[in-house]
Design a protein around this nucleic acid. Sequence first.
DNA 1: ACGTTGAGCTTTACGCTGTAAGGTGTCAAG
DNA 2: CTTGACACCTTACAGCGTAAAGCTCAACGT
Lengths: 245, 245
Amino acid sequence: MEPTSDDARRPRLTRERIAEEALRLIDQDGLEGLSTRRLGARLGVEAMALYHHFPAKGALLDAVVERLIAEIPMPNCPRDGEGWSPWLRQVAGEYRALALRHPEAFVLLAGRRFNARASFAFLEANAQVLLGAGFSARQAAWIFRAVGGFVNGAGLALAATLRQARETEGALIADPAARMPEFPGVAALAPHLAIGALDEAFDFGLDLLLAGIARLPRGHGGRRHVPPGRRRRETRKAPALRPGP
Amino acid sequence: MEPTSDDARRPRLTRERIAEEALRLIDQDGLEGLSTRRLGARLGVEAMALYHHFPAKGALLDAVVERLIAEIPMPNCPRDGEGWSPWLRQVAGEYRALALRHPEAFVLLAGRRFNARASFAFLEANAQVLLGAGFSARQAAWIFRAVGGFVNGAGLALAATLRQARETEGALIADPAARMPEFPGVAALAPHLAIGALDEAFDFGLDLLLAGIARLPRGHGGRRHVPPGRRRRETRKAPALRPGP
DNA sequence: ACGTTGAGCTTTACGCTGTAAGGTGTCAAG
DNA sequence: CTTGACACCTTACAGCGTAAAGCTCAACGT
């Protein structure tokens, strides 16, 4: 089973090497630039060779997602009741850093369901911290969804902004107002939505969430969360279970 | 310039008709199922005919995004200082409803920068409401980013969940715990992350944000937002302006 | 020492994609 | 009737994901 033969010539293919080169290719040429043939060429191999390591391209993308998740350094989990907030803040920051480093690949993170182990391990660490802080399972799940949703959305917006900035490469950047006389409100907000203000906007949103979470009553029951405002008054959306059997 | 000729035979192509049929096709067969040829066939036309109405497929997708945005009913904008909260809640709910109705297309909304007029008009309405409520431009921009990020992320997660549920079509659904003995935390959260709990999780996150926003000091200056916790203590990420010109 | 095996990669091929280039038909204006 | 523009069609090309079969060669049982 050992290769031992032409290591000198070619370092042999592994899932890890493939996923890593795939990520590099995405970073360089965008998601649409990743094709089995081009990836194979970079690895010194024909396209079909990849299919001995992944059943389909989708599985390869899952591996790239896992590689991205693995890039997040996990700080040592606090077990006391108060460490959860800085912990969440740091993990959220690292997650966002992925969008900065890999704007072309970030949509994979935001758009695909966690499938692989590394992703579950990531989720597990978060769950442990929240449960350890005294939140109920229900609260922890909702907190994860809320923070996760925000971080995904903000990362996606950041990635899109970076991508667009790279495309228009120094061309007509911004032109904040004056270009849209009919949208004065947008013009007023524009400077604070520009690329330089993204950091602060992210911190703002995250602080909002964390402050709200800190104010939650801890309880393993977590019977029902009824916030300041009344429940939505319009007709509730159906829970969207599949219609037919 | 008027068609007036073979309306009986074929209703003529317009950008609107094309975008609408494209959305229907995406809803039915997924984003990857949208091809110029298949779309053309549905419209009773050859693929290349589309290129007389859109310069490229990307422009068509932008039109689909615009169509989606236009689907959001905009409630009459409040001009007083308190109406912003229910207004935001309703708009957020409608936005999320898009993810429910068009799970396959939602990634377009979350992943592409707003380009077209309708999208700007949407942004403008939000800006007007927030500015009218007494928030500074900076605050309004951050609020929009925070709520927008959350709503995009949550919608994406919802869409992914719906998509996955449709794929595994009644097959091994959920299997909440027992399948992963090494991830007890995840197993504990799983029931509250399942498809039936998504509504409540969304409301929870949104309430968190809205409550936090309501607590903001109104001010046109909005000099600096320094929340309960100290600023991020780790080294700040670079603002990510493009590196070299 | 020798045939067998099977992993790892290549070859070939198919149906699909987006779209560039140029052709065709129809209709309104002159 | 001629003209020209517009809307659509035809053809073609390079590239895509991947099914199926072939090649090469180290490792193994006998």
